[in-house]
Amino acid sequence: MSEPVTRRDLLHQVVRGGVLATFGGGAIFLVQKAHGQVVWQVDASRCINSRLGDTGAEACKLCTTECVVALSAVRAVNEYSKCGRCNICPAYFNITSAVDAQGLPSEKLCPRDAIARKPIGKADPEDPANNFYEYSIDEEKCDGCGKCVMKCKEPLGLGSIVLRVRYDKCEDCNRCAISRACPKDALIQVPVEQALRPPELHPRTE
């Protein structure tokens, strides 16, 4: 049973065709210029927790408090190849707490106990000062508060711990809530490849 084609239907068809063509054109235009996925990342040379020269200040916790993701999509990561593997790590220990019988500070720094320490290399069980240590951060526990980052940075540490966006958590918001709050505009959008390489915090000069 075919309905008679009315003038109204014809008009609709024409307009629909026009709209479809417009959509197609818009889509082709957008697809043509779409290249290079960018993602949010913390620029370590801007973040007050990691950039040099802000010694002694309290850690900025906005990455923890502002992120729309539970616990925050920003976590601290330890770039192992830059870590000094110290016995007394200022990011692991609260270095101003009382010293215990082993000569180590008695308190840990991380409020969520997210940093683990283990001796590596030829471990000397007798003398804790005779070892290298690997410090790894449990990203499931870390909420990106930045306390350890603040303590790890030069000159106290080597700046191996930095805040990084974790992409399996990040919602990739149009306007990242942390970037809205960040006083130093340290949340930037970078191409994926660039976001994944280690941050160049301290360019080597010599």
Partner: peptide, 19 residues
């Protein structure tokens, strides 16, 4: 320009850590 820079890589690497 960043006013402070680390002149050389000072962190011990896997080969020096050994074991």
């Amino acid at each position: 320009s960043i006013p402070y820079s680390r002149p050389v890589e000072t962190a011990p690497q896997a080969e020096t850590i050994g074991g």
